[in-house]
Simulated scan of single mutants.
Amino acid sequence: MTEQFDVVVIGAGMAGASLAAELAPHARVLIAEAEAFPGYHTTGRSAAFWEECYGGPDVVPLTLASGPYLREHGFLSPRGALYVAREGEEAEVEAFFARFAGTGVEITALGRAALRQRLPGLRPEWGLAIAEPACADIDVAGLHQHYLAAARRGGVQLRTKARLTAAEREGAGWRLAFADGSELRTMILANAAGAWADAVASLAGAHAPGIQPLRRTVAQLRTDPAPADDLPLVLDLAGSFYFKPESGRLWLSPHDETPSPACDAAPEEIDVALAIDRFEQVVDWKVVAVERKWAGLRSFAPDRRPVYGHDPAQEGFFWFAGQGGFGIQTAPAAARLGAQLLLGRGRDNMTVGLDAGLYSPARFSR
């Protein structure tokens, strides 16, 4: 007899694990993961931080709503952030403040002396900065395991090496087939497949809005001097690099966004070299060695807002995708909102201020 579920969630990364955990008290749920273990792709390769401005003003409400949950459960460690800019880029600094005015983020201008105290070795042309004191490191692995454990306690089943190969409407629900030959029935198919979100939609006959995977590269460097443990996250206001300390080493990214097919992403040497070149234009530190390098895929809808909600045309198909690089820092509020939308339940204190219309898949209706 074919097993029957209320919801089958495709993908066991942060998106799928958090959504399943929120659904667990209210529905019979299964997570189907194509890889051998959860979090193999983007979640397992993230250099995540909780950074209030990351993702832009439309993402800020999700980030701020998630902050208390992340702090309460011990997943955040204070870091602070600095957006840096060159002399002569005052207009860009003013535009940044204007962009986030009224959003609730805490940002302040930092003077030249204070900037150099916080970032030793800064080259003289970099004289402008915006400080974001609330920025924090995220324990990504801990948060992911937290949601997987909560899902498991709630009775959610997890199946790995379960790549979806077919999804057909059958009566009021779905018949799903997987690469291992197994089949399941479910009332709702929830698409939390990250870089594969459009492919899952196509299998189910839903309109794929064009969620594009973009490759992001990170390298771990040994530098002289070694970065101080309390060095803030440093981001280029123009979006061409960021770096942060990690256990006596430096994690550096060229902030690349290279379109890619959905795949097991690998770093390109040119992107690592570009990151180092940009880093050396900011500080006078010596790069002693590149110790590790990796890449992950960050998936964005065309308007760069996440996609949460029931598909407007395909009954029983639910979107929980397009979360770019902000899906980890927004996981608590996004998953809570997603579960409420999927189940038709009311809002709670975490989600009451969120405008679900901003994230609805209906905005892509043909």
Rank of each mutant, 00 (worst) to 15 (best):
D6R: 07
S18N: 09
A21I: 11
A24K: 05
I31C: 12
F37H: 14
Y40G: 00
H41F: 06
G44T: 10
E51D: 07
E51Y: 07
Y54M: 12
G56S: 10
P61W: 02
T63P: 07
T63Q: 05
T63R: 06
A65L: 11
R71K: 13
R79I: 10
Y83N: 05
V84S: 07
E87S: 15
E89L: 07
V93F: 04
F96L: 09
A98F: 00
T103L: 06
V105F: 00
L110D: 02
L110N: 01
R116L: 02
L119V: 15
P120E: 12
R123K: 13
E125S: 01
E125L: 09
A129F: 00
A131W: 07
A136M: 06
D139F: 09
Y147P: 04
L148N: 01
A149F: 05
A151H: 03
R152T: 15
G155P: 03
L164E: 06
L176G: 01
D180H: 02
L184A: 11
R185I: 03
A192Q: 03
L203W: 13
P209C: 10
I211M: 05
I211N: 02
R216D: 02
A219C: 10
D224E: 14
L237F: 02
L237D: 07
A238Y: 00
G239Y: 10
E246A: 12
E246H: 14
S247L: 07
R249V: 01
P254W: 03
D256N: 15
E257S: 11
A262F: 10
D264T: 13
D264M: 12
P267Y: 05
E269H: 11
D271G: 04
D271Y: 11
A275G: 14
V283N: 00
W285Q: 08
V288P: 02
E291T: 12
D303F: 02
V307N: 03
G309C: 03
G316R: 09
G322M: 01
G327Q: 08
I328C: 01
Q329R: 04
A331K: 03
P332S: 02
A333E: 07
G338I: 08
R345W: 09
N349Q: 14
T351Q: 07
V352W: 12
G357F: 04
R363L: 01
R363A: 00
R366C: 02
